[in-house]
Design a protein around this nucleic acid. Structure first.
Length: 536
RNA sequence: GCCCUCGUAGCUCAGGGGAUAGAGCAUUGGCCUCCGGAGCCAUGUGCGCAGGUUCGAAUCCUGCCGAGGGCGCCA
């Protein structure tokens, strides 16, 4: 790796100058401005003070010394600004990137960062009492995308959906179905959504309440699966809460907690000593009426997951952030490392339609089903729009814009770039050209600013993927994809692949860029779960 | 009252210790012999406020202001 070569050379020079730099002090970054070179080191700035030197002059001394015999792959070293050391890499490095993309075909930028680690990503986990709605969409798209990212960097990813298929909400749901079926008024805490009517009609006659609940749960699950599969989201496991009652896991975990003194009885209820592990207060596990709170099954569930995973990721909505502390406390109480439970909170999304806010109130008949969003804007736009921004930020987007086939729709912009590359390739083939992998002595043909931009974009893709995976931030892939699509359009505009004034050799050289770009863009879109259309 | 997230251009958002803070849209003005004009190029404006840490702060810390969410023997 070129970065290792640069770091080694810096380390050596510092040693010659009698400056001890800690290994992690030597880091390289990409200069924001391309004119500053390909890699930049701030080591002179970092060490100047302790070395009793002026940063700029220290940088210059290092640069002068390095220039005497340049490290492999480096063609220029300069000192700049307050004391940066900038490196410009050789054409061979660029060529290597191009070759790498062409060679790896569909897994460019993948890595073994997470090799051997089993990560369980739990997301959506909507109650099986109705269809998925707009509020579930962000977590669904996000959870699946981080699953993709983690897989790409080598983790053994398990996607999981937790079904709260027992408890009072299921009884209320079952009674609502019964009421609709029999045309009697809904119970007070009933589910009033229009879908309950439709579902009740599908329901077989004369079922017991228990059978109604089982039927309704199964129906809801299939409905949710259907919607998710429209988005290309598939779970490895649909985990039933009820199953942990049946097989005793919940009672086991409670027993273990009591035995180890992490839970106790008070006022007729059973409490988790969560304060001991950083929570604000102790939490009830079993109510005084003998019923479990939501927490008891959740604790059992998380233990179950820990027993088959090395790392747990939960994707929760903003309204659940208050539960993080108690869940982590519970895991510590059970002897797990709470750092191996990562809870990602997604902030709310406000939907607009033609500039008007679409209300998400849960009032009767007033939910927006996720299915209808997909119908309105398409699966690709749904995924892309929901992944557009960091989940830490509240998000606003306009359905009308997302559905439009206009240039201000980022989904179209990016997919268009891909389709264009395919089109150019087809055009070249129709003109009788055959793709041949670029030879290194032909690299000099690619000198246009646009061509450099393409190579630069491909170069930073692997590090972008790694960062996005590390930070569980798929929106960084979206940003890359948008930037790269921009480069592609510019390249297409300024650099004709096939044309009167273009030599045969240049056509082939540019064709290499086209194919590499197409693959790079495909990698990005695949990670997001957005299709890459050959034509539009 | 306490906890979490956020506050960056007219709008939607990137950037989350580094150099001149970016993109799209909107505005205004250019660009079609030819691979898809569903495009490209140019154009003005901005880090909520106040302290602090640092060679260097939009970024880290503290306080304040503002927005949203959360603080149940509800799920």
């Amino acid at each position: 790796m070129i970065t290792e070569i640069i770091k080694d050379s810096l380390r050596k020079k510092l040693k010659e100058l009698g400056i001890d730099a800690l290994p992690d002090q030597i880091s390289l970054e990409r200069p924001a401005n391309r004119d500053h070179g390909d890699w930049s080191s701030n080591i002179a700035l970092v060490t100047a003070k302790s070395a009793g030197r002026q940063a700029r002059s220290l940088a210059e001394e290092i640069v002068n010394s390095l220039t005497v015999s340049l490290p492999d792959g480096i063609v220029e070293v300069t000192a700049a600004g307050p004391g940066f050391i900038n490196f410009r890499t050789s054409a061979e490095i660029s060529y290597g990137i191009l070759l790498e993309v062409l060679r790896t075909e569909s897994n460019y930028g993948s890595s073994e960062m997470g090799l051997g680690k089993r990560v369980n990503v739990e997301f959506v986990s909507a109650n099986p009492t109705g269809p998925l709605h707009a509020g579930h969409a962000r977590g669904a798209c996000y959870g699946d995308a981080i699953g993709n990212l983690l897989e790409y960097v080598g983790y053994d990813v398990h996607r999981e959906f937790y079904m709260n298929d027992r408890g009072i909400q299921m009884i209320a749901f079952g009674r609502s179905l019964e009421a609709r079926k029999n045309n009697v008024p809904l119970p007070e805490d009933g589910y009033g959504g229009e879908y309950v009517n439709a579902w009740a009609e599908e329901m077989p006659e004369s079922l017991s309440l228990e059978e109604v609940i089982t039927w309704g749960c199964e129906f809801a699950k299939r409905d949710q699966q259907d919607t998710l599969s429209q988005l290309g989201i598939h779970f490895d496991t649909w985990f039933s809460e009820k199953s942990m009652i049946d097989n005793g896991e919940i009672s086991d975990v409670l027993e273990d907690l009591i035995k180890s003194g992490m839970a106790y009885e008070k006022d007729g209820a059973t409490w988790l000593s969560s304060i001991e592990f950083g929570d604000d207060k102790d939490r009830v596990l079993i109510k005084s009426d003998g019923e479990y709170t939501y927490l008891a099954p959740d604790v059992a569930y998380h233990r179950n997951k820990f027993e088959r995973s090395d790392w747990l990721i939960n994707v929760w909505g903003a309204d659940h952030h208050g539960y993080i502390a108690r869940m982590k406390a519970a895991m510590q109480a059970l002897g797990y490392d709470s750092d191996e439970l990562t809870v990602q909170i997604t902030q709310l999304v406000k939907l607009l339609r033609a500039g008007e806010e679409v209300k998400l109130s849960k009032r009767q008949g007033d939910i927006i089903e996720l299915r209808s969003i997909i119908e309105e804007i398409g699966a690709d736009a749904t995924r892309f729009m929901y992944l557009l921004q960091s989940v830490d930020s509240k998000q606003t987007f306009d359905l009308e814009l997302a559905a439009s086939q206009a240039m201000d729709n980022p989904v179209y912009y990016v997919q268009m770039a891909y389709a264009r590359l395919c089109s150019v390739e087809r055009n070249a083939m129709e003109h009788g050209f055959e793709f041949q992998t670029l030879q290194i002595d032909e690299l000099g043909l690619l000198i246009h600013q646009r061509e450099m931009e393409i190579i630069r974009g491909l170069e930073i893709l692997p590090e972008t993927i790694e960062l996005a995976a590390r930070e569980l931030a798929p929106h960084k892939i979206v940003t890359w994809v948008r930037d790269f699509a921009n480069s592609v359009h510019g390249f297409h505009h300024d650099c004709y692949v096939v044309g009167d004034g273009v030599s045969k050799e240049l056509t082939n050289a540019r064709l290499n860029l086209v194919v590499a770009s197409r693959r790079g863009l495909k990698v990005g879109l695949d990670l997001l779960g957005v299709t890459a259309p050959n034509k539009m």
